[in-house]
Amino acid sequence: MRNKVLSAPYLFWMVLFTVVPLILVAYYALTGADGGFTLKNVSDVRQFSGVIFRSVWLAVIATLICLVMAYPLAYSMSRLRPQMQRVALLMVMLPMWINFLLRTYAWMTLLENTGLINQLLGLLGIGPLQLINTQGAVVLGMVYNYVPFMILPLYSVMTKIDQGLIHAAQDLGSNTLGVFVNVVLPLSMPGITTGITMVFVPAVSTFAISRMLGGGQNLMIGDLIELQFLGTSYNPNLGSAISMVLMVLVLLLMSAMNQYADEEKEGMII
């Protein structure tokens, strides 16, 4: 069919604005300021291993908290009456429509030293505690911003779990734990892997949340990259090398998740 020709403008666009820029990242990562080939940038990334480790660590904690928090919620939502399910779904999605900077700003005002939370604690005779500019605040910001990405894929696989299967397992003598481990958990696996990817990727690469809630001390990979491109230490070669490391981290996670669930696209909400 000649219709294939219709995709020509997009193919041109895709090569120019998706493929070429990624090749450029690799090119800049492997060349020095003079344009010659060098591995210096890549080996320089090692000196930031502390920052990289912290990013992965904070993102892992945030992802786990999201999973633990979202799992029971998604399950309860999927067992509501259809009318109520729609309301609950809308309520989960509504905050996603507000820019994440505004949502993070809201937490800035709540957590600051003279903020509402510290005032309430003061009434109880506690504090004031140092809440903002801590790693805990960064994790909280990630959880708050990305937990809908965990809830939605989990919910979408759980609505497909037949209540009959659960009853059957119970009739056959399974207790609550048994039903969970043998029926609900395996059937919701695609949602879990999709949710983990959708939370971990933005969490590990964030720079705005760590800047706003972590102060200057809790730098993450995203902050490093941003500093190389827009900050005072302009060095696109080093920035590209760090970006490559970030991409490798994300690819590693995704291939690990693919091992767990072949049908990982099932829970995808695109």
Partner: peptide, 17 residues
Amino acid sequence: MPIVNPEIVTGVSLSLL
């Protein structure tokens, strides 16, 4: 690619372009 890649990588790569 642009959906899966971290947004910051897409941003950086386009700015390089």
